[in-house]
Design a protein around this nucleic acid. Structure first.
Length: 674
RNA sequence: GGCUACGUAGCUCAGUUGGUCAGAGCAUCGCACUCAUAAUGCGAGGGUCGGUGGUUCGAGUCCACCCGUAGCCA
């Protein structure tokens, strides 16, 4: 039976570009959506730019344009980035839309009429110069508890204290620098506590992951409180009906933006919006979100929907954040990588594959390990998978004019591959993508094993066994075809190229039931090329450059420009490196190596053989007899010319611009340097 | 500070309800092969499953505490 599934990803905020952290969510969602479509379900994927709020208003002001111009510009960039990564939205809209205004007013009005909206006067910080109320994050001052300077209006990053902005000492407005005043203002509140019973039932009903449910229980225990949903003018957003100068808080109309984007799609495709959103709808609604916005999606959102007479989400799928090389993304390390920067250096399908290989259904963070990324993509995608087609198609193309045999020599093996599809589909459905990848790669291993056992390259040497070659390669290419169908949600572009190579129409999940026989394929072109580590490094380098702080950037000709000071290490870490004074007893050129010199070092009794890349900078006779500094406990490294048992320290960019270190007179070979 | 997760081979990760669960891939080393984008196949080494106690006939698997990491605290 065909399922009707509406899927959303969280709305990216329209004040900055998409980065790799965002993409964890969109790639994850897109894979799931593509899988559902491949299985024949009626699945619609919508999203939008989150366009309202104080930051948008201020950013537009800073750029000297209107908020509308800003969100138009950002929206266009976001669409381009998402498209480049193959994110197949059915509709990508904006929360600043007539549909969203209408739905926000409708939901608000229904909630108010049902008695779920309160209003009362609150005190809030006000910027007299700008004539605006200030969100907590727009006030800075000294922490009232520990006195740390430059802390935000809600909490101290130094001592962890939480407080109200009025408690802050020496407070200033971040917008104007003026001293904030305290003023009163009428605010509107959504009575979340009215929905406690409903929310508890819902949260315990399997609509969220276990760890999210735990978190919700904690919040239930603390007690649900009303939620301030209004903001004062000036504010970029929707005016609250029945008020003169009050606006909906951006977080009220943001999730409604899911509905609005879908409404916009329905209107253009003749779909019945109400059938999907009425309280007793039998369609499914999936929200993919980051773990930081669980509160909004698992409490406010179902409560708002319920209170306004709409259906609630089928499932909230929360995911963790992305780290790079085990640490939070960092601008100084060059690991705060924008989508655009990634695209300048690497194929987006690789990131899709890598993320899929590490994504599960839990809320865990996902680490982008750059070495692992390079190796994984090369080993799995290129070495294992694409290689299956490459090695088998060469025979079919050269010997059989691209023609596949009329039957499979190992039908049982093929049936086995098809049968494994159900297990893979189940993993996809449960969003266990890492399991999907593991299973597919295990099958890829089997395909390579089959090919190796059959040894078609041997059979091809004898005319009598030549037909067997065609049969074996037909079998192998059919196994490859099955794998590409299974992998299609993850790497749609490679899958499409594989379909072109196999000379078939777009395959759905069912297509694998029938093998491809007595059929002519096209000439094989590389479907994926290896990742060069240099490209990864260049991407990191570009991320570092574009985001280096402008004010204290080192002069362009300073070595710091190319190699910024590394992250701090503690003294213990430094202590692990054993630096010693060494005498260069002998130095010699190495045959066959144009960069290396072979040095014989005396470390005060112990002799070391070291290869150093100094040939362009020093002649051997310049070095003999001199003292220098060597890393004495570096693990010996086997090189083509012998084993290198240490590293001589030198400064400079390389080539002939290298300068070895030399201790002051008095130092003796073997002395420890610290 | 409170809470929620996580901490398993060099790296990235699997390990359902406690009993062949000490695993996979990559990396490393050896052998084979040469059809293939130096890709593939076979084999080997490598972990006291963060630490310390406890429950149990038996614990990565349950409990307590500690250490470390990430996040949330509306």
């Amino acid at each position: 039976m065909q399922r009707n599934i509406l899927v959303t990803s969280a709305l990216p905020y329209a004040n900055g570009p998409i980065h790799l952290g965002h993409l964890v969510e969109y790639i994850q969602t897109d894979i799931w959506v593509r899988f559902q479509k491949l299985r024949g379900n009626h699945c619609i994927y919508v999203c939008a730019d989150d366009a309202h709020g104080t930051p948008i208003m201020l950013k537009a002001r800073e750029l000297g344009i209107t908020p509308e111009e800003l969100i138009e510009r950002m929206g266009r960039e976001h669409r381009e980035d998402f498209a480049a990564f193959g994110i197949g939205f059915d509709n990508y809209y904006t929360t600043h839309s007539p549909e969203n205004r209408e739905l926000s007013e409708l939901i608000y009005t229904r909630l108010r009429e049902a008695g779920h909206i309160d209003s009362r006067t609150i005190k809030q910080a006000f910027d007299p110069e700008q004539g605006m109320f200030l969100p907590d994050r727009y006030i800075k001052g000294d922490c009232p508890r520990c006195g740390a300077a430059g802390q935000y209006g809600d909490s101290c990053e130094v001592c962890g204290a939480t407080y109200t902005p009025t408690e802050l000492k020496n407070a200033v407005s971040v917008v104007s620098g003026a001293t904030p005043e305290e003023r009163e203002s009428l605010h509107y509140f959504f009575r979340l506590q009215d929905f406690e019973t409903m929310l508890k039932d819902w949260a315990r009903g399997g609509h969220v992951q276990q760890e999210v449910a735990n978190k919700l229980e904690e919040w239930f225990t603390e007690g649900l409180r009303e939620w301030d949903i209004s903001r004062d003018a000036p504010y970029f957003g929707f005016q609250i009906p029945g008020t003169e100068d009050k606006y909906f808080y951006v977080w009220l109309d943001a999730p409604i933006g899911y509905m609005a984007s879908f409404r916009n799609w329905c209107d253009r495709h003749g779909e019945d919006f109400d059938a999907w959103w009425k309280a007793d709808s039998d369609t499914e609604l999936y929200h993919f979100i980051g773990k930081d916005i669980v509160y909004f999606h698992a409490l406010f959102w179902p409560a708002m929907l319920h209170g306004a007479g709409f259906r609630k989400p089928t499932r909230i799928c929360a995911h963790g954040f992305m780290t790079v090389d085990g640490a939070k993304m960092s601008k100084s390390r060059g690991t705060f990588i924008m989508a655009r920067t990634y695209l300048n250096h690497l194929d987006p399908e690789y990131l899709r594959y890598y993320m899929a290989a590490k994504l599960g259904s839990h809320v865990h963070d996902l680490d982008l390990n750059l070495d692992d990324f390079t190796q994984r993509v090369n080993a799995d995608l290129v070495g294992k998978l694409v290689n299956i087609a490459s090695r088998s198609s060469s025979f079919i193309n050269k010997r059989f004019d691209g023609r596949l045999a009329a039957e499979l020599p190992a039908p049982a093996l093929y049936r086995d591959f098809v049968a494994r599809g159900e297990q893979i589909a189940e993993a996809y459905e449960n969003r266990e993508f890492s399991r999907v990848i593991r299973d597919i790669m295990a099958l890829a291993d089997q395909a390579n094993q089959y090919f190796d056992e059959e040894q078609p390259w041997v059979l091809a040497k004898d005319a009598r066994t030549l037909p067997r070659v065609q049969a074996v390669c037909t079998q192998t290419l059919n196994l490859f075809r099955v794998l590409m169908v299974y992998l299609k949600p993850v790497v749609p572009k490679i899958a499409a190229e594989a379909e072109a190579f196999l000379n078939v129409d777009a395959q759905d999940w069912q297509a694998v039931q029938t093998p491809l026989l007595d059929h002519t394929i096209n000439r094989f072109k590389p479907l994926a090329t290896r990742v060069e580590r240099e490209a990864v490094d260049a991407m990191v380098e570009e991320s570092r450059e574009t985001l280096a702080p402008k004010g204290d950037a080192p002069a362009a000709d300073s070595p710091l420009a190319d190699h910024p000071i590394a992250d701090p290490v503690d003294v213990d870490t430094f202590g692990q490196i054993d630096l010693r004074v060494a005498r260069i007893e002998d130095a010699a050129v190495v045959d066959g190596a144009d960069k290396l010199l072979q040095l014989t070092l005396d470390l005060g009794g112990e002799k070391r053989n070291v290869f150093a890349g100094l040939r362009a900078a020093y002649a051997p006779e310049d070095l003999r007899g001199r003292l220098t500094v060597v890393v004495a406990n570096l693990k010996p490294r086997k090189m083509r010319f012998g084993v290198s048992e240490g590293m001589v320290l030198a400064a400079g960019p390389g080539g002939d611009a290298l300068y070895i270190l030399e201790p002051d007179s008095g130092a003796m070979p073997g002395m420890r340097i610290r």
